[in-house]
Write a protein that binds this DNA or RNA. Structure first.
Lengths: 201, 201
DNA sequence: AGCTTGTTGTACTGATTGGTACAGTGATGC
DNA sequence: GCATCACTGTACCAATCAGTACAACAAGCT
């Protein structure tokens, strides 16, 4: 889904990555509108001509940032790629918590931060939505695996349960963000996991 | 908590309200950074001198908007003020759903939209947090009432359960917003309510 | 009438915004 | 050697941004 110009040289790729990295980091903290192109370029050490060489406009940079966020998120919870037991789900929630327990950055989901701001932007909102669907699809696949193994009731709907889990993750992160306290996320995940386990046969 | 100048005349109050109303509506759709002071004034019919007569700067206008959001939200779910039975909680969730079922505006919590954007603004983030705490406190009071009436287990923690409910509401709204589909909120509320009912003695 | 205080309209500023123009450099293939 | 094309640096632009200056108006009070 790379609608923006690709880099065809190692040097170009490095520059492009530096721009996206800087944008991702700044937008995570200051939001999209609060992050100007000039700030991104200053932080990445690139010039304006590079930026508009690789991206048609700021919106296309944001598109790349959204992709980057999804990569980062999934990369930080590798257990989500191999959910084949209830213990794996527990590992997954632990990885999720560990990411935000690490000091430094704000406790927040980069995609969740965007969700409110990008809200009705017809170009960006669908991309955020799609990123969430990709994320959620991994959970659904894991639940389907459990069902096939007989560890989840045959009547349970993996898609619906996966959406419920995502809901808990996002709600928990939103409150944890505002309160600078991860407890809200811990509780939300614990409740979500218990809810899922309630569908054991 | 009115840190901004108050209006001491009916005419002044009307103008100030018009500015806050216009700002609230615009920021609901376009976000804080996406809503310029000029746009707010154009939409409200006021001039710049009015704006800076009643508000020291844009941030103080946003403060007033946050207050307005909380009023609107609670006003749209009046059942939250008198939660004395499980049926009342069901009524509350129905009211919450009805707000967003009404066509027109986006399916989203105005405060939730702000949460990501003002994330770390040291002036605004605490206000959003406080608004959520006020909202949540009504749920906690209702749960305490139920506990005192013996309809909730004595060991249950109303504060924690209230937070769990808020988590579901916010997570459900975030996903419902992105998908333009209220189902995510419906499911989240239903699960939350079932979770709370699980603490019946 | 005149004074005071709250309110309003218009014009302005300096900084920042997203985006463009264009000349130049670097490496690769022939 | 030379052409080509990806890449880069700098200067620039019109529009918009938040915020200010200041004179004028409205209304209640004496």
């Amino acid at each position: 889904m790379e609608t923006q110009a690709a880099a065809s040289t190692p040097r170009g790729k490095r520059t492009r990555d530096a721009i996206v990295d800087a944008a991702a980091q700044l937008m995570y903290v200051d939001g999209v509108a609060g992050t100007s192109v000039d700030k991104v370029l200053a932080a990445s050490g690139a010039g304006k001509s590079q930026m508009y060489h690789y991206f048609k406009n700021k919106d296309q940079l944001v598109e790349a940032v959204i992709d980057r966020y999804l990569e980062q998120i999934l990369g930080n919870q590798p257990a989500i790629f191999a959910l084949t037991s209830w213990a794996d789900f527990e590992t997954w929630t632990e990885q999720l918590l560990d990411v935000h327990r690490r000091a430094g950055g704000p406790i927040a989901c980069p995609l969740g931060n965007l969700a409110g701001e990008v809200g009705d932007n017809p170009k960006l909102a669908p991309l955020v939505d799609q990123a969430y669907r990709t994320w959620e699809a991994h959970l659904e696949r894991g639940l389907t695996t459990l069902r096939d193994k007989g560890e989840l009731a045959a009547g349970a709907d993996p898609a619906r349960l996966a959406q419920a889990a995502m809901t808990s993750v996002q709600g928990g992160l939103l409150l944890a963000h505002l309160r600078h306290d991860i407890t809200a996320l811990e509780d939300a995940l614990q409740i979500a996991l218990a809810y899922l386990r309630g569908f054991k046969p």
